[in-house]
């Protein structure tokens, strides 16, 4: 009985890994930045599920704690990455966006695949000088 559930969990973990690989292809090939962020977020959800299943496979409750931690961190990471690509900095208060539209703290960046890398270095240099 428990043997069957054990194999069930192993199968679930295996299929979750397959789903993660499928998402990785989108992460690597996504034409826009947002496709990649979307794939990253979804990948994180799958990692949470995988950790929870894995904790039951090896029979240790501690793994579920790690899954909780990852569920919270995944959300924060997505928001942080989005914020970074919007303002090119993390220390910008989101309130500024509502107060003043014509004078953003850092010039909003565009999201092209090729141009992001050049832009990133460009804005960083601009800020430092």
């Amino acid at each position: 009985m428990t043997q069957f559930l054990y194999y069930m969990n192993v199968g679930t973990a295996f299929f979750l890994l397959i789903g993660m690989v499928l998402l990785l292809t989108r992460l690597l090939s996504g034409p826009t930045l947002y496709d990649r962020i979307l794939a990253m977020n979804s990948f994180g959800t799958k990692v949470v599920l995988f950790l929870a299943v894995f904790a039951l496979i090896i029979g240790r409750d501690d793994g579920v704690d790690i899954a909780i931690l990852y569920a919270l961190m995944n959300f924060i990471a997505t928001i942080a990455v989005l914020k970074f690509f919007r303002y090119s900095a993390l220390g910008v208060s989101l309130e500024d966006e509502f107060i003043e539209e014509e004078n953003p703290p850092v010039a909003p960046r565009n999201t092209g695949v090729n141009k992001t890398s050049t832009n990133r270095t460009g804005t960083k240099k601009g800020k430092r000088t």
Binding site: Y34, I37, L38, N41, T45, V48, A52, D61, V64, D65, A67, I68, A71, L72, N74, F75, T78, I79, L82
Partner: peptide
Amino acid sequence: KLVFIAFFLFLTSPTATHAV
């Protein structure tokens, strides 16, 4: 603990989706 995970996913996934 698993109930907590389910609850967090239920709350955070639409927020993250809307943010993206």
